[in-house]
């Protein structure tokens, strides 16, 4: 048992438990907190995959930004309707069957496919390579992404504008 194996099982258990809590808990606010735990666990999976840069991005953008936005939205909507939002589920068995079917279908492909077993050696200069790729082959996509973010935030501002 290497450190990576132990770490993987621990992180997988935390990730699956918090993901289940997100979709099963009654309290919407608790669901968001469990989502934050799941996002941090996902970031730790990135660490296990030797991507500390993505771990940082995950923590800052997802666990920091997204969770904050969702908490704000819950607080705003609870104030708007003036009551606590109960989080209930419907068609639980139908949903479970569909989700299990999707999982079985994906795993069916995973079992059949021939995967490369060992990891290739890590390139020594990963971070500079990411930076060069972002302004090299992926430069156009990066610029489009910046435009998309501006448009999305302007759209969100327009939607959530106060009544006049």
């Amino acid at each position: 048992m290497t450190f990576e194996t132990v770490g993987f099982w621990v992180v997988a258990a935390v990730l699956l438990a918090s993901s289940l809590a997100v979709v099963l808990t009654k309290n919407l606010f608790h669901a968001v907190l469990y989502l934050a735990a799941a996002l941090v666990a996902t970031g730790t999976v990135f660490l296990l995959l030797d991507s500390p840069f993505l771990f940082g991005v995950q923590l800052l953008l997802y666990a920091g930004g997204v969770v904050t936005i969702v908490v704000f939205a819950i607080m705003l909507t609870e104030r708007l309707i003036g009551e606590r939002i109960a989080q209930t589920s419907r068609y639980v068995w139908h949903g479970a069957v569909v989700a299990a079917a999707v999982f079985v279908g994906v795993v069916g492909f995973l079992i059949e496919a021939p995967w490369p077993a060992p990891r290739p050696a890590l390139p020594a200069d990963l971070m500079p390579a990411i930076g060069r790729a972002l302004v090299g082959p992926f430069a156009a996509a990066l610029e489009l992404l910046a435009v998309l973010l501006v448009i999305a935030l302007l759209g969100a501002l327009y939607f959530a504008r106060p009544d006049d």
Binding site: F8, A12, L15, L16, S19, L20, V22, V23, L28, A31, A38, T42, V45, L49, V70, A73, I74, T77, I85, Q87, T88, S89, R90, Y91, V92, H94, G95, A96, V98, A99, A100, V102, F103, V106, V107, L110, W115, P116, A117
Partner: peptide, 27 residues
């Protein structure tokens, strides 16, 4: 690689379950 892909498939299935069963739009 299989272990990571299976973990991702499990999380995806859990998320799909949440999308299908939640009543609340934020959920």
């Amino acid at each position: 690689l299989n272990a990571y892909l299976t973990l991702a498939a499990l999380v995806f299935a859990i998320g799909l379950f949440g999308v299908l069963t939640r009543r609340n739009a934020i959920g």
